[in-house]
Amino acid sequence: MLVPNAVKIQTLLMDRPIASGSFDAPDLLRATLAVIDLDAVNSPANDAALIRSYFHPREMDRRDRFEHMRRKDSYTAGRLAAKLALKHHCPSVDMQKISVEKGVFDQPILLADSSASDVAQLGISISHSDSYAVALIFHRAHPMGVDIDLPTQQDIAPVLSGLDEKTQRRFADLGLSDVACASLIWTARESLAKALTTGMMTPLALYCSSNITRQGNCFVLHYENFAQYKTHVWPGKKGWLALTMPARTDMKTADPDWE
């Protein structure tokens, strides 16, 4: 089993003015974040009992077809994070009746057997890094995206080379190191791309920020071309966590306790 300090699961509560006539559901502004610290666990692909209790038969079949353990570990960790988040979000749902599949843009989607139809209104976002597996469950009417990463030294120059002058000046004002700048902008872009379901196939210039502010330990980015979204980014020792949400939505809960 995963050791207790390796997994952190929490409910995120949000607030948003609802426009007249817009869709309003009881759980619209509730999301669940699950983070697995992969450095604190042995190979998650080896925990057969845990996997059987959470995985759909299709997921079991898929993981068994991976030949390389690194890829099997990555798949297993991401799916486990997804199922742990979903179980916390919907405690009564049988996880073996839910399968995390891929949509036409390779985005993760939740497919449920008929007896688990309660998840039909939910969306999911998943991210991996060398140290973490992260999943976010949210209402599909309130799109979100999550990413976690820590760019390598070789990644830093390519990430920073494409920044517009306005963003470069803002980073200088914030006094961030090159590693922090690259981590911040990369995870923010990835989480926005997941919320948009574009992946990183869109020219990076389209993700340019209109403003970057610091709020305590959190950075908040708004965008020139996607004004309907904003991204919260939290720095960490082994990775930076980014969460994209609609721009008019505010966090009611404290910053996620994810490290």
Rank of each mutant, 00 (worst) to 15 (best):
A205G: 11
A188E: 09
Q121R: 15
L136C: 13
Q168Y: 00
H142A: 11
E165A: 15
D173W: 05
D149I: 05
L111V: 10
A182Q: 10
H128V: 01
Y207C: 10
F138S: 08
G199W: 01
L221S: 11
L196G: 01
K166Y: 07
L221I: 06
Q96F: 03
I109C: 09
A182G: 07
V159L: 14
W186G: 02
V159W: 00
K166W: 05
N217Q: 14
C218E: 13
Q215A: 12
L111Y: 03
I185Q: 02
D173M: 14
R214N: 09
D118E: 13
T187Y: 03
R170V: 10
C181A: 12
P151E: 06
R214G: 03
A135S: 14
H222C: 10
C181I: 06
S210P: 03
K194S: 00
W186T: 08
D113W: 07
M144H: 02
L136I: 13
T202V: 15
I126T: 11
A112R: 02
V146T: 12
F171L: 15
L160H: 02
L206D: 10
D113I: 12
T197G: 05
G145I: 01
L174I: 04
A188C: 12
S131V: 04
K194A: 01
S114C: 10
S161F: 08
F219N: 08
T152S: 15
V146P: 02
G162W: 00
D130G: 07
M144W: 00
C218K: 09
I126H: 01
K102E: 06
E165K: 14
Q168G: 13
G162D: 08
S210F: 05
E165Q: 14
G199D: 03
L184S: 03
L150H: 07
L174M: 01
Q153D: 15
M201G: 12
A188R: 07
A133K: 05
S99H: 13
S114D: 13
M144I: 08
Q168L: 11
L192N: 00
T152Y: 08
Q96M: 12
D130K: 10
G103F: 09
S161E: 14
F219E: 08
S131E: 12
S115R: 08
N217T: 13
K194E: 00
E190P: 05
S99M: 12
I185S: 11
D149N: 09
G123N: 02
D178Y: 02
G145R: 00
F171P: 02
A157G: 10
